[in-house]
Amino acid sequence: MKIISWNIDSLNAALTSDSNRAILSREVLIKLNALQADVIAIQETKLSAKGPTKKHKKVIEELFPNYQIAWRSSQEPARKGYAGTMFMYKKDLKAEVSYPEISCPHPMDYEGRIMTLEFADFYLTNVYTPNAGSELKRLEDRQNWDEKYADYLVCLDQVKPVIATGDFNVAHKEIDLAHPDRNHFSAGFTDEERQGFTNLLNKGFTDTFRHLHGPVEGVYTWWAQRVRTSKQNNSGWRIDYFLVSDRIADKVQRSEMIDSGERQDHTPILLEIDL
């Protein structure tokens, strides 16, 4: 099975805007369709509470004619047009879609952050983890989220193996970002968030990229948009992951990043696994 994951930072803009960034985003979407993955997991769709419009669906159908979609948007009392997740998966696949709530701090359960596909032999779950925020104002809530999310994955894993993907908003080790010395008190690299990710792995999950590639340096999934030269200088962070249940780690064949060209922010990631 081939799976792609991408924090698109506004599917709405990618499908409807004529800005240079939107054009670059559509070029990436065209590239993803050419790869013909079985499933594409999207984070940060920023769609309305009603989900994709007719125009969105028309463009998706044109770009991805062999796929069906399932989506989850931010709902009141959470912010409108915020966060959100989506699955695009081949029309011939049989999967049960669920929209879990994990009793995390309000209003995170309303922000459309988790979707799960249940297949006959495994679960595939898509997550957009909350950011700890400016001045780490949401760090305590983020720690609570990390505990609840780990418990959720453990519950799934007790039934059948799990593949968990998405934007986890944490660089786990110093090797996972270009400038660890400058960022120990930055959202996404605090001791608390890194420990939360360690705790998750210790509950029976494998970081597939490190499993296959070991301590390779300079490989990232996100470059800050606000720093124009961040991608040119490869001043990035690895915050997007494919995790799998430990017992299926040996079935992973590929776990890598997909080149998104000039476009900064997140780049898509790819997993191939023989299940």
Rank of each mutant, 00 (worst) to 15 (best):
D191I: 12
P77Q: 09
Y128H: 01
P130G: 00
E174Q: 08
L93F: 14
F189M: 05
F197P: 03
E76K: 15
F122V: 05
L93W: 15
G112E: 13
E140R: 10
G196A: 06
A150D: 05
A171D: 08
Q75D: 02
E147H: 03
I175Q: 03
S186E: 01
N126M: 03
A178T: 04
A83D: 10
N199Q: 14
R182E: 15
L93Q: 15
I102S: 10
R210N: 07
P161K: 14
V127E: 01
F122W: 14
I102T: 10
Y99N: 08
D151F: 10
H184M: 10
D176K: 04
S74V: 11
G133H: 01
Q158Y: 15
G204C: 11
D121G: 01
T208L: 05
M115V: 13
A150V: 07
F205T: 01
Y149Q: 01
R72C: 01
D167M: 13
K91R: 15
Y152C: 04
T198R: 12
A78D: 07
P180E: 09
D151E: 15
T85L: 02
L177A: 05
A120T: 12
A132Y: 01
C104N: 01
C155Y: 11
K148M: 06
S74H: 08
T208P: 11
Y99D: 08
N131W: 02
I102K: 12
S98F: 12
M88C: 04
E140S: 10
V127N: 03
H211Y: 15
F189C: 07
F87R: 02
I163H: 10
L117R: 06
D207E: 14
P161L: 09
A178L: 06
Q195M: 12
C155N: 15
K137C: 00
R113V: 05
K80W: 05
L139C: 08
F205I: 08
D167Y: 14
E96R: 13
S134P: 00
A120V: 10
D141M: 08
L136E: 01
Y89L: 10
Y110M: 02
M86Y: 04
A171L: 10
T85C: 14
P77E: 04
R113A: 03
A78E: 08
E192I: 12
F197T: 06
L93R: 11
Y89H: 09
E111T: 00
H172P: 09
F185H: 06
A120C: 08
L153C: 14
E174I: 03
H106I: 03
Y128R: 01
E118C: 03
R72E: 14
I114V: 13
F168I: 02
T198G: 10
N183V: 05
D141I: 00
N183P: 06
A95I: 11
P130K: 00
W71P: 07
N144T: 04
D151Q: 14
N199W: 11
D176L: 08
Q195N: 10
G112Q: 09
K91A: 12
Y89E: 06
Y110I: 00
V159Y: 15
T129W: 02
F119R: 07
A83T: 05
F205S: 02
K137I: 06
V159I: 15
R210Y: 07
W71K: 00
R113M: 03
M88W: 09
